[in-house]
Design a protein around this nucleic acid. Structure first.
Length: 567
DNA sequence: GCCGTTTTCGGCCCGACTGTTTTCAGTCG
């Protein structure tokens, strides 16, 4: 955890604790807001403190700034101790159980000395709960189910697989809908999603719901009403919600169900202050409905340009829109090539011709074929001889594909001692050198990556944090230092678009831009089909507010070989 | 606790759903 995340976590826990204690809900919300803003902040909080800019952050006032300063100076926060006094850590965890809010937690704590999941389970089995005021049989039953759901774990699935699922469902429903779209975090291309939301409209709303609940892959219909249905789908038991609305409300509903919650709250505040009201049915001035058929109409009524879904996180996009200063986000059609593709020489599935063909089909002008280096045994890393052979074959295949430039590349390991896995004479024959950590995750990673950045032949650092969305939390790395050095040396950091990585993520990519670090998108594809992960990389870049000029993949290309006089 | 083309004080998004309730509290997104 970096300092931003540490402090965000403290504020989050303070909010939970204060809420259980019945503190003023607006104060509670102020802590939650501050926690969210800090966790999504692209600047290092330590730097902002030094510059005296803490209170310039939206949601951080003098009181929060003082607490941040106290924590950074002493490693402690008195307010945190105070807020949590008298509450056990296990008690805060109870808030995560579906159906369990602060009022319920507080009541169970006071009346039955419930302090943990185990205590809750004991009381659920004791029969004492039903006797509490406001409790009945159903409520107890819901808590029992909630505890079960919590224990199964709130598995979020990565964006890539979720997109595949939702697109298949949307396709199958499109025949009975006049308009249909994914909504929610999926439409904002958030890196993981907890459930899938779909919004649809059409002439026969009942029919859409009927079809939805009978789609192939539906395991269980959780709920089925006139405007909404929820199902669980195989194999992971992921929940999919469908909402249907009248055609006139489609835009307002799409805006509403796309979120984020924080974006919508700010938008509604803005609406109220300009004499409007927004809900999922439309935009209203008094009793009069003045818009809502399209999303553009919703924003236009508030004198805002359309805000792309990827930006709707309340990270300053509404303020920017008010000033007509939204960035011109990069799009898929700006992409001219892919920096990071594996062939059958290492652990990829396809040969050079197959990859070149796939690149041509995608309309790319170039493709960097980057296989693993020798010491990555588990991925059949190439020896120097293998690599030389591959370079020769690239020259041959290149003649058959005059329209797609095949860049000679390698994903070269940064060894535990900080050296690279190929000798310089070999690296100098490549067009693109990507350096990456695949071993020694806890061994001086920052120093090793910086050594790679300082190597004169390195162009890109692959997946800079090493995190995996489905598990691994990443290397111990001081990204701030790495970015500063990368900016000085003009070495690019990768936005690795492989579905399980998305590394750099949106927040870090935004930080990289602000420091002047070049950024390169690589799909890390291990087959032709995986070239389509480019979409995830572009989405990450868009969530980071990046434009065409911020991403090296938008350039036609560049240069051939590192040196001109290599024999 | 934050914030200001209504405000330095007095507000702070909005609606649906559920369950326990005789008019509403709690939770959720």
């Amino acid at each position: 955890m970096n300092k931003n995340e540490e402090i965000a976590s403290l504020f989050q826990q303070i909010a939970d604790a204060l809420e259980i204690k019945g503190e003023n809900p607006f104060r509670v919300n102020a802590y939650r807001q501050a926690a969210r803003v800090l966790s999504e902040l692209s600047e290092d909080i330590r730097v902002l403190l030094q510059q005296g800019k803490l209170t310039e952050i939206q949601g951080i006032g003098p009181a929060m700034a003082e607490k941040i300063e106290e924590y950074l100076a002493t490693g402690k926060m008195a307010k945190y101790q105070e807020a949590l006094s008298g509450l056990s850590p296990g008690l805060l965890a109870l808030l995560q159980i579906p159906g369990m809010g602060p009022k319920t937690v507080s009541l169970l704590h006071k009346k039955l000395q419930v302090n943990s999941l185990e205590d809750l389970e004991r009381e659920l089995n004791s029969g004492r709960l039903e006797a509490l005021p406001g409790f009945g049989r159903k409520k107890v039953e819901n808590l029992r189910k909630g505890l079960q759901v919590y224990r199964q774990g709130q598995a979020r699935i990565p964006l890539g697989p979720a997109l595949t699922i939702v697109r298949r469902m949307v396709e199958m429903l499109s025949g009975s809908s006049s308009q249909i779209s994914p909504a929610g975090s999926l439409r904002r291309f958030k890196e993981t999603v907890g459930d899938i939301d779909i919004l649809a409209t059409g002439r026969d709303l009942n029919l859409i719901i009927e079809k939805f609940t009978h789609l192939p892959g539906v395991q269980e219909v959780i709920a089925r009403g006139e405007t909404k249905a929820s199902v669980r789908i195989a194999p992971e038991g992921l929940q999919v919600d469908l909402r249907v609305v009248a055609e006139d409300s489609y835009g307002a509903a799409l805006q509403y169900f796309t979120g984020s919650k924080a974006h919508n709250i700010k938008l509604r505040s803005l609406a109220v202050s300009s004499g409007y009201k927004i809900n999922e049915y439309g935009v209203f001035r008094g009793q009069k409905r003045v818009g809502g058929k399209t999303e553009e109409e919703v924003y236009r009524n508030l004198r805002l340009p359309f805000i792309p879904p990827e930006l709707r996180e309340d990270r300053g996009e509404i303020e920017a829109a008010l000033k007509q200063e939204l960035p011109q986000l990069i799009t898929m059609s700006d992409i001219q090539g892919d920096f990071h593709v594996h062939s059958h020489y290492s652990d990829g599935k396809d040969d050079l011709r197959g990859l070149a063909e796939a690149a041509r089909k995608r309309g790319y002008k170039w493709l960097a074929i980057a296989d693993h280096s020798v010491s990555v045994k588990y991925a059949h890393g190439l020896t120097s001889d293998d690599l030389m052979k591959k370079l020769e074959e690239i020259d041959q295949v290149q003649r058959e594909f005059p329209d797609v430039w095949l860049l000679k590349a390698a994903e070269v390991d940064i060894l535990p001692d900080g050296k690279l896995d190929y000798p310089d004479w070999l690296l100098s024959r490549l067009d693109v050198v990507i350096a990456a950590i695949h071993q020694g995750f806890s061994k001086n990673v920052t120093e090793r990556v910086i050594a790679a950045i300082e190597h004169p032949l390195v162009d890109i650092i692959a997946h800079p944090t090493g995190r995996l969305l489905t598990g691994r939390s990443g290397y111990q790395i001081d990204l701030e230092k790495v970015m500063e050095r990368a900016a000085e040396r003009s070495v690019a950091l990768e936005i690795n678009a492989y579905f399980d990585r998305l590394d750099l993520n949106d927040v870090n990519a935004a930080r990289a831009k602000s420091l002047g670090v070049p950024l390169a998108i690589g799909t890390d594809a291990h087959s032709q089909a995986m070239l389509s992960y480019m979409e995830l990389g572009v989405a990450t870049a868009r969530r980071a507010w990046l434009t065409k000029n911020d991403i090296l993949n938008t350039r036609p290309w560049i240069k051939r070989g590192k040196r001109t006089n290599v024999s």
